[in-house]
Design a protein around this nucleic acid. Structure first.
Length: 648
RNA sequence: GCUGCUGUAGCUCAGAGGUAGAGCACUCCCUUGGUAAGGGAGAGGUCGAGAGUUCAAUUCUCUCCAGCAGCACCA
């Protein structure tokens, strides 16, 4: 038998018989390592302890201490144990797939009856039973025919379909523990007893389409979370509880920012507090955009279908539009209109007024464009995904050569805005040419290169999202996460040669001939609604002072101080600070608590001492102690703090 | 849109086949209190909407609406 040389992380190497498994390698080092080992990294790949190694390579043996590998194995094995538990309780349930995800795993099942919360408890109990059996995990490679026959015989049509989708002659790996078997890439633990039976929890059950295809049957997906030990599980569950407190829907109610109601699903009734945030943010964006070389326009809400037909939206997007029909009793002619779902066609209309020269380009046309989209009911989510919203939208009309520069300029602009708003980090997704597309390959090459260069020039990392661009051009999406880690697209940058073509936008070039401009769709915040939702969650309601709807509450401690409280409020207002008086007949404890819960950043308490000395007792949100300071000092300090970041 | 769950006072929630309850919030009274809930009284609900079963439905059944979780969608 031939020999192979395995190199360990410390640089030493040893010879073994070809076909040696990591389990055998571990045993050759020490008994304790053999027991503790869970997997290996072989030649850069995560390797099952049972898989043979056939050539010279690098090897590292993993134990539970290697967090990345351990968590992947644990979660993957939990998924298998859960599937086995389900089939032991309900033998007729069909299994499909069960991958590892952030913090845990899921497994999709096909079963007539819905799983209930009580069922989840029963499954958890069965899983613990299985783990305690400490069944060894074994694996074998099967050929396709055998695997297909096996699953056909066992009435597992989903597995058969999975195998049929696996390309050609790729060998199929089977895993067992106990009598239970699953088709799986691996790697897995050595035995089910290596799973921490007290460090997992089944979280929820929800529908999920088979193979992610909404035309196919809906399966039941059970989600679980799993960790190396009980403490980490507890920590995770606690984190979820904390995150729930930051939910913008809850804080929106508690801070009296907005509400929504049945009569206008997916639309927001902004209350004075919430609208203050909104307008402050909009004022800020308006100043930033002016400074950034944009001109601002405003275009109609209700637009005749003729324009949507010309733009192509009527064909492709109609089911997502609110259609407005004006009938003949009210209008001279019957007309069919749509509420605008986006601003671009209207912006081309503005562009098309008057002949443009190459000297006018790039033309950056911005609008705080109020849009309505008939989003699917299941997609609605608080103020993050709504049917009526306002984009901080703009379209840059430019030449192909200007795209790179405009893209870089936008990324810098967006970074500056995000930084001002407290988001140092964000994810850029670079979506490239899809299979179904228009335009020449040369043009796609050029435009994709322009975007890539722009990202590099501005010094950001990005994630490639191949094939996910629009049919007419590539795009960048800028994403932020909410309190529980759900990812939301906020900013966007899209290259579009298509709409100028459809709506016949032109400019006169240096050569005196007509040319077609490119149109760059771009939004920084995306929508005010979504961005405010994200901001509420990321700040847990404690917005930066300049954005806080109620910046200061001045509270009297005794009613003899009420007049002074009004003077203090007037002094603050004179400095442009949003201040209000609280002279209710309540104790100071009560007032402090109420305004703390309401996330008011500064409470100024005034008793007779302050009245006599011309001071205020300042207490900042989150701080336990207050400080007595001269009123003038406080108004000056707060006025500085109230300055928006772009004016500071 | 799909699967499942939920809908009772402004909010958070309890409850039962015989037309409803708590805490907080609200109003009034007492209290003038020094930094996260002082005390008392009062008012407040067509139990999401519609239909059906029943002597009787807010409770059971069906349909619809909305919300929540996930999936799909987000040009």
């Amino acid at each position: 038998m031939s020999q192979i040389s395995l190199t360990f992380p410390d640089g030493n190497s040893r010879d073994y018989d070809a076909g040696v498994t990591p389990a055998e390698v571990a045993a050759s080092i020490s008994n304790s390592l053999a027991k503790k080992a869970v997997s290996a990294t072989v030649g850069g790949a995560h390797w099952d302890l049972q898989w043979p190694i056939t050539g010279d390579t690098q090897i590292a043996i993993h134990t539970m201490k290697d967090e990345a590998q351990a968590l992947e194995l644990i979660r993957h094995d939990f998924a298998h144990v859960m599937a086995r538990a389900v089939q032991e309780i309900w033998p007729d349930v069909k299994v499909t797939i069960g991958p590892v995800i952030d913090n845990g795993w899921y497994y999709d099942f096909d079963r007539e009856e819905p799983f209930t919360p009580e069922d989840l408890g029963a499954i958890e109990a069965k899983m613990k039973e299985i783990i305690n059996k400490r069944d060894p995990v074994t694996t074998e490679i099967w050929d396709r025919d055998r695997a297909i026959k096996y699953y056909e015989a066992n009435n597992e049509p989903f597995k058969v379909e999975l195998i049929e989708a696996i390309p050609g002659d790729e060998p199929l790996r089977m895993y067992w523990h106990g009598h239970w078997q699953d088709l799986c890439r691996g790697p897995h633990l050595q035995n089910t007893g290596q799973l921490p039976a007290d460090a997992f929890k089944l979280m929820s059950v929800a529908g999920a389409y088979w193979r992610g295809d909404s035309d196919r049957s809906m399966l039941q997906r059970i989600y679980g979370v799993g960790f190396q030990n009980k403490e980490q599980l507890k920590k995770h569950l606690h984190m979820l509880e904390e995150a729930a407190k930051r939910d913008h829907r809850k804080l929106g109610r508690e801070m009296n920012l907005f509400h929504m109601q049945e009569e206008a699903p997916g639309q927001i009734f902004w209350h004075p507090n919430g609208w203050t945030i909104y307008t402050e943010l909009q004022n800020y964006m308006r100043r930033k955009q002016r400074a950034g070389g944009y001109v601002e326009v405003n275009t109609p809400q209700v637009v005749d279908r003729k324009l949507w037909e010309a733009s192509g939206h009527w064909d492709k997007y109609q089911e997502h539009m609110f259609i407005v029909e004006v009938d003949e009793d009210h209008a001279r002619e019957k007309s069919i209109n749509a509420l605008k779902p986006m601003n671009c066609p209207c912006h081309v209309q503005v562009y098309n007024q008057g002949l443009k020269s190459y000297r006018d380009l790039p033309l950056r046309m911005a609008e705080f464009g109020s849009c309505n989209r008939y989003e699917p009911s299941g997609a609605l989510h608080g103020i993050m995904r709504v049917r009526g919203f306002t984009q901080d939208d703009a379209h840059v009309f430019c030449t192909e050569e200007q795209i790179e520069e405009e893209c870089a300029r936008f990324i810098d602009f967006l970074s500056s805005v995000y930084k001002d708003l407290g988001f140092e980090e964000f994810e850029i997704m670079f979506a490239t040419r899809p299979e179904k597309r228009v335009g020449t390959e040369e043009s796609w090459d050029h435009v994709e290169n322009a975007l890539e260069n722009a990202i590099k020039k501005t010094g950001h990392e990005y994630t490639l999202d191949p094939g996910e661009g629009a049919f007419y051009g590539p795009k960048l999406d800028f994403k932020l996460t909410d309190a529980i880690g759900r990812i939301w697209q906020c900013g966007t940058f899209q290259v579009d040669p298509n709409l100028p073509e459809r709506l016949d936008a032109v400019y006169i070039g240096e050569d005196g001939a007509k040319h077609r401009p490119y149109m760059l769709h771009r939004a920084t915040l995306g929508s005010f609604e979504r961005f405010i939702g994200i901001m509420i969650e990321s700040h847990a309601g404690k917005l930066p002072f300049w954005l806080a709807p109620r910046q200061v509450v001045v509270a009297s401690i005794v009613s003899d101080a009420d007049d002074y409280v009004h003077q203090v409020v007037a002094a603050l207002k004179a400095k442009g600070i949003r201040a209000e008086a609280d002279i209710r007949n309540e104790k100071i404890n009560y007032k402090v608590r109420e305004h703390s819960v309401g996330k008011v950043p500064v409470i100024l308490a005034c008793g007779m001492k302050e009245v006599e000395e011309g001071t205020v007792s300042i207490r900042r949100l989150g701080e336990k102690h207050s400080k007595v300071l001269p009123l003038d000092d406080v108004t000056t300090t707060l006025a500085v703090e109230a300055t928006p970041p772009d004016l500071a």
